[in-house]
């Protein structure tokens, strides 16, 4: 008898607890969705304003546009001059990739496969570079690139950029090459491949996953850079996309909001497209970097 009531109370308690868990779950999911909206709204909201005239905007900013007008886009496109900037940014990205990835892959390979006192010391020298903030060297970097005449050229921007990417990717490549079975390299050598052949024909293809991540993330890093470009590029013809956006911010205020919104749409579009198609890889790459590094 008592047993029965105890278990009944227990079941009732369990039911209440379960209902409470469900309620907590719903509340939490709602909070999660609200926070996701908070992330995505600043990117979507400009679309509300872009089709309006200035007058229409000042009277009813939040109504639906009465008519689809494109002239804000035209004006913003002219003002922000992002076309040229996009091209320059792509050059900088290519240059940064070409500078960072091969150098890091080669160095990482040596540090992983040819361990000796000397390479160990050199590895620590590279490791130190990982902790150097680029801010620290801006002044000498500017002076030095002016002296050798590459300031205000795109290589003058992507070469230092590559230098600051190399430590991190060398670390990643090193741990990647260490994870590959050593027998493969040994077998290649028995088959008569030299050091160079072993690297290029056997080991490097096996490191493709690391290479894809490196290319992708170096690309994104160069794509987003602002500070280095600001200091090392002065010629408006060489402005990268981010410098163009910054220039727009300085020249045009938010008074003409529809045009400003159109510029924001234009400015964020390339990154947004990149992210929509590549987000899986981008997140995976960031994690691989973060978990190993």
């Amino acid at each position: 008898m008592t047993d029965y009531t105890v278990s009944e109370i227990y079941i009732r308690k369990l039911r209440i607890a379960r209902r409470r868990t469900l309620a907590i779950k719903i509340i939490n999911v709602i909070i999660l969705i609200i926070l996701a909206l908070a992330v995505i709204l600043p990117i979507l909201l400009p679309w509300f304003f872009v089709f309006k005239t200035r007058l229409e905007f000042s009277y009813s900013p939040w109504s639906l546009p009465t008519q689809i007008r494109w002239n804000n886009f035209q004006e913003a496109w002219v003002a922000i001059k992002i076309g040229q900037g996009l091209l320059n940014t792509l050059w900088v990205c290519m240059g940064a990739i070409a500078g960072t990835v091969p150098a890091a892959a080669m160095a990482g390979y040596i540090f992983a496969r040819y361990q000796s006192k000397v390479t160990e010391v050199l590895f620590y020298a590279v490791l130190v570079g990982y902790f150097i903030p680029v801010h620290m060297v801006l002044i000498p970097l500017y002076q030095f690139t002016s002296r050798i005449g590459i300031v205000d050229t795109l290589p003058g921007l992507f070469l230092p950029m590559a230098a600051f990417g190399i430590p991190f990717w060398t670390i990643i490549y090193r741990s990647f090459f260490r994870g590959l079975p050593g027998e493969l390299a040994e077998a290649a050598r028995i088959d008569g491949a030299g050091h160079t052949g072993t690297f290029f024909r056997i080991m490097l293809p096996l490191a493709n996953p690391a290479t894809i991540l490196a290319v992708l993330l170096v690309f994104i890093g160069a794509w987003s850079d602002y500070l280095l470009s600001l200091i090392l590029i002065n010629d408006p013809k060489l402005f990268t996309m981010q410098l163009r956006i910054a220039q727009f911010l300085n020249q045009y205020g938010t008074d003409h909001m529809p045009r400003y919104a159109a510029a924001a749409v234009i400015a964020s579009a390339p990154t947004l497209l990149l992210y929509i198609f590549g987000h899986r890889w981008i997140i995976r790459g960031t994690l691989a970097g973060a978990l190993k590094g």
């Binding site: 996701a36 992330v39 995505i40 727009f248 964020s268 987000h279 981008i282």
Partner: peptide, 23 residues
Amino acid sequence: LRAVYYLASVMPSAITAMLGRFI
């Protein structure tokens, strides 16, 4: 949702600044 949360981290800071002023 994870992809949405990470989206803002991919935005270059110049664009984040632009959206900041916009808001």
